[in-house]
Nucleic acid binder design. Structure first.
Lengths: 399, 399
DNA sequence: GTCGATTTGTAGCGTTCTGCAACGTATCAC
DNA sequence: GTGATACGTTGCAGAACGCTACAAATCGAC
């Protein structure tokens, strides 16, 4: 419950302008005046300050087809980037992501076995050190965002429990910060996926959204509630995978019976298809192509269970859009009608009537964009907070 | 995505100060400076404006036991009230609620049968007309808030579906506004209950909270997510009653099978106890007193099903507190340990570890306070928005 | 190609609100 | 009573935005 003063007004307005160009990619100054409701002269001053700080650039408009003096186009500076890190069971992926959402570079560093925290940190730090020349020459790095497949405590980036990596209570953010010298934030991968889809994917402009992702190791999710990412009190929110959907004895990765994650699995789809492995696109292709009644039965079984979980979430959250990623998107693609009517059977008409079921749009860049967004958040909240025009600090010694 | 100007700063600061005294009941000016971070002189000016507008009053502190010049105590004016209306299956309740959360008056108008919208509006309007003399002499009325047992569209107060009242697509707010001349807002009763408990009851100061209420006609709920009431895209959020908790064939009021509302019912508790009817306290007494194994078995069955729904909600929302009202509070009171361990069995340790399970505290005033809060919301957001001035019939101020 | 209409950038001024510093005042402890 | 402390009060300065007037750039009509 804080009061605000003039400094806050300026900060807020800078933040609003930077967020707008961050999300839209580019906007004319006159568009900014209309959207923000601020005065022309104020927008001019705000944009000038953002240009000074090296966060945005102005360029002449190309051809407007409009009467009147042309308004300069404001777009995000291509030099401002965040680093994205995503440790997985078989690799650590590191990326350079621009403030405009563009993924400049992505390095996937495969590991023989599931990496320990120390290994993951060392890999990330080594890759980042390798890029440091490029980063310092061409870019201004605001920080590092880490997408972790597990529960992450929001405020300090402690990994409480990442079952598939076998991590428990690991101070990941702290370690990576010490190893690289950049500020580090970490969050659950699916929550970041939700944020990415919301801003740059299937949920553009949506204020209430549920995102569910199906991966090799289970089902995770995230939500946007009332326009803000909902993390819960400690950042553990969004665990849709452990929602109960049946009375069966199957257990999930957390040992809970009859849950979504226990009933709806990528592994079983691959098995019934007779495939050893497949990426998301291949799986979807195979499911569509198959005419086997066994495959069909398994797909139907999984769709029906997925529907129960979705209906429950929809009844509780009344969202506008449900975004499905990974193999859940494949289930939607194969039989959207069945999924829709199954959800309808378990949900309230009023709440489900307006819901759109969408497949995720961002594909393999999803987590890079989401993690980067996490790192950008501080800058977007307070564009004047960081020192203007100065790249991030010096590297510290490795642990 | 709006910019802010000077007017907004002032409005925001007035709003912050009024909200603080609204929730705390009273605070010294020096406390306000500390909490808001604003300057002494600014607080003085803000409080002076709120006093001018008749929204708060200042009084001399009684005994501070502190060195230094005593700071005036700022508290909400007792003249500012909202009207609360709650149509139910067997009565319409109307109340006068102060900005300090005090319920000045409550009138329960019983009906022979479930009232139609028109009847409910007419009853409310008649009762309010009856109070009008008092209202105009002693109070300043900011508006009417209605707590409806059903789905209500947030922005215009249309009752989409109130199953127990048999209302479908009724423009309740509009009708009551026309009948009384006061601005009217309406929302789901359980969502308002969540808000009331959050500000004045078991969830004081909590930012992430789930509220579930068990009534004669079913189970409703509401949530506070990240400090804000979560209504979803149309205000239908919080329907925990229709969460699936078993594979059984029992159906709930919406015709959905195996849901919380189908399995956990007040009626069955009364039946097994051999009671014809009982209020919440009597039911709790009877359950505690009973030694019958049948009663025990039914209680356990209901607790176990309730636990599934709570666990699902906790996994998804990661709240700090779960507040149970109505007969659900009785289940908690009878065997909190069983409920706790049953929830633990279905939820993630990290998410459930920190959750407090509480009984609702506000009892019979819950919906009056919640509905009034809805009506106050506009005033709290913009204390200067309504015409300034002194309520009618106020004695002239001394020179 | 010139002229008017339209839209937007730019510069200077005024308004509003908050912060700050100095001073006044009420209470407590001795 | 006297000093210390905390807070209210007053006057002034600074910061940010809106407003107005003017300049500039584009389009369309003739």
């Amino acid at each position: 419950m804080q009061g605000s003063s003039h400094d806050d007004v300026r900060r807020h307005n800078l933040s609003v302008v930077l967020r707008l160009v961050h999300r839209s990619g580019a906007a004319s100054r006159s568009q900014l005046t209309r959207v923000t409701g601020l005065n022309r002269s104020t927008i001019a001053a705000l944009v000038a300050e953002l240009v000074d700080r090296g966060l945005v650039v102005e360029r002449e408009p190309s051809s407007t087809n409009q009467v009147g003096r042309p308004s300069p186009i404001v777009s995000v500076s291509e030099q401002v980037v965040a680093l994205a890190v995503n440790p997985e069971i078989d690799a650590v992926t590191i990326g350079i992501v621009g403030l405009d959402g563009q993924v400049h570079r992505r390095v996937r560093y495969p590991t023989d076995q599931s990496p320990s925290v120390l290994e993951a940190v060392n890999i990330a730090a080594a890759v980042i050190d390798g890029m440091r020349g490029e980063l310092e020459a061409r870019f201004k790095v605001v920080g590092i965002g880490v997408a972790v497949p597990g529960l992450v405590r929001a405020h300090d980036g402690l990994v409480r429990h990442a079952p598939h990596l076998g991590w428990i209570d690991e101070p990941l953010a702290e370690m990576l910060e010490a190893a690289t010298g950049y500020p580090v934030l970490a969050a659950n991968d699916a929550s970041l996926g939700a944020m990415a889809e919301r801003f740059f994917g299937a949920g553009k402009g949506i204020t209430d959204l549920i995102y569910l992702n199906g991966g090799a190791s289970g089902i995770g999710g995230g939500m946007i509630v009332g326009g803000a990412p909902a993390g819960g009190i400690a950042g553990y929110a969004g665990e849709f995978g452990h929602t109960r959907v049946s009375d069966s004895e199957r257990v999930d990765s957390a040992g809970i019976r009859g849950t979504l994650e226990a009933e709806v699995t990528r592994r079983e789809l691959l098995e019934v298809l007779g495939l050893a492995g497949a990426d998301a696109d291949e799986l979807e292709q195979a499911l569509r192509a198959s005419t086997s009644p066994e495959v069909r039965a398994e797909v139907n079984r999984q769709i029906d269970h997925l529907a129960v979980a979705l209906a429950g979430a929809i009844n509780i959250l009344n969202p506008q859009v449900v975004v499905l990623g990974g193999f859940l998107a494949a289930l939607l693609a194969v039989d959207a009608d069945r999924l829709r009517s199954a959800v309808a059977k378990h949900s309230l008409d009023a709440a489900f009537g307006t819901v759109r079921l969408s497949a995720a749009e961002l594909g393999s860049n999803l987590l890079m964009i989401g993690a980067a967004e996490l790192a950008f958040e501080g800058l977007l909240d307070d564009p004047a907070g960081l020192p203007a025009g100065v790249p991030a600090g010096t590297p510290a010694e490795s642990p």
